Simulated assay, not measured.
Amino acid sequence: MPSFDSLLKSYDYELPQKLIAQHPAIKRDQSRMLLLERQNGQISHRNFAEIVSLLPNSSCLVINNTKVLSVRLPGKRRTGAVIEALLVEEKSEGLWRAIVRKAGRIKTGELLEFCGGNLRAVAQKRLEEGEWLLSFDEAELLKDRLEKFGLPPLPPYIERRQANDLQNAEDRERYQTCFASEPGAIAAPTAGLHFTPEILTEISKHGIDILEVTLHVGLGTFSSIEVEDIRQHKMHAEFFSVSTQTLEQLKKFWKNKKKIICIGTTSVRVLETLAQKNFKVRSGWTDIFIHEPYEFMMMDGLLTNFHLPKSTLMILVSAFCGRDFLLSAYRQAVDHNYRFFSYGDCMLIL
């Protein structure tokens, strides 16, 4: 493998705007899939539904069961000025750190209304630029109200400013994996969006174990890198957990050298964190940032979407398959009009 390049600009690529997916595939399992074979350097064009036959026999699939919270809240000030809050971190029940758009004139102690008045919060404290600490009324009811009235926290490259109720309902369903069960994420583990219950059943029938881990996707996953030398980047910590039974299974699989296929970079980060801690913890906070050179302890294959240029996600994938190989695959994906980012197509790296 070529020597490691630590410059952020080395993880850049050109992407036509038209290839950024604005909507998911009509059916979850109808995405296209680029297959990258690390051993022979081959790249081939497949469909996601073929994953059942491509996974190694007797391997293990690891999925992230985090559930995305509906934490994008359109709102307004008492003056009528329009604002929008993205809740990014729960400090305590009903108290959230939030990124607020058009927050310049908000005053400490001001009452803000969100989602047509169904949610109300006091602007308790101004934090960093554009960030506030918001204290919500009736904190014990907040999670239920977010589920009912909040909008999915779609990334900014998906345009939804004029979305109607029908579009919002579709996003609530499709920006969530079919196996999501543990509420806590502010972004979806997008590699999991391609799966259907039927595909998972077929995989199980082929004798492949499916294990669930949890990593609540937060700012750490999608915050941009602001330094030119990627080794200086610091990740925001994100909460992870695995059950005692899953931890024991993972230890056994690792010991027996069973092939482990991670669904998404968040699953990778959980497994590598567990391995680094010698399987002595099963929950906590991880700020692991994986970049070359890195020797993976717990992964033999990866299903992942196409990521933003110069992102921590792209750098992690590069560490697994090599930067030159990955950039070559991205160029092919662009040439063949693959759909990029959260609602886009995927690649399977074996």
Score class of each variant (00 low, 15 high):
A49K: 07
R120E: 00
N118Q: 10
S241Y: 14
G264K: 03
T266S: 09
L303D: 03
E128V: 06
Q39C: 08
L19T: 02
T201P: 00
I210V: 14
E138P: 00
E170D: 11
E248Y: 13
Q332L: 09
T196D: 01
L7D: 04
H23K: 15
L350H: 10
E89I: 07
K258Y: 11
S342V: 06
D324A: 11
S6L: 11
D144L: 05
L200Q: 07
F289N: 08
M1V: 03
E248P: 01
H291S: 09
E138R: 04
G117I: 00
V68Q: 00
D171T: 06
Y157T: 05
F325N: 01
D335M: 07
S328M: 08
S311M: 10
L54P: 02
H307P: 04
K27S: 12
N168C: 11
V281C: 12
E140L: 00
K107V: 01
A333F: 12
L151G: 00
S283H: 14
N65R: 12
T221G: 08
F48G: 04
F325G: 00
G117N: 02
I26L: 14
I203Y: 03
S6F: 12
I349K: 01
A25E: 08
E14D: 14
L19Q: 09
R339E: 05
G75A: 09
H233R: 09
A21H: 06
N164I: 12
E173S: 03
H206S: 08
F4D: 09
L111Q: 07
R145C: 00
Q162Y: 15
C346S: 15
L86E: 08
L95Q: 08
V281G: 12
S181L: 07
L154V: 15
V281E: 15
N57I: 08
E128H: 12
S243N: 09
M297G: 13
V122H: 00
N337W: 09
T196L: 07
I290Q: 09
C60R: 13
R145M: 02
G150K: 10
I199S: 02
F240D: 04
L327H: 09
F222T: 02
I26P: 04
Q17S: 12
L19R: 05
G104L: 13
S311P: 06
F325P: 01
E248D: 15
K258F: 10
C115T: 05
D165Q: 14
Q167N: 03
I290D: 04
F340L: 14
Q232R: 15
Y343M: 09
S318A: 09
P293R: 02
N118V: 00
Y343T: 03
F222R: 11
T196H: 02
F279Y: 15
L34M: 14
L119T: 00
F48K: 05
D5G: 01
D324V: 07
S311D: 11
S92R: 13
L69V: 04
I106M: 05
F253E: 05
T214K: 10
R160M: 11
P197N: 05
A275Q: 10
S135Q: 08
F195H: 01
A319M: 11
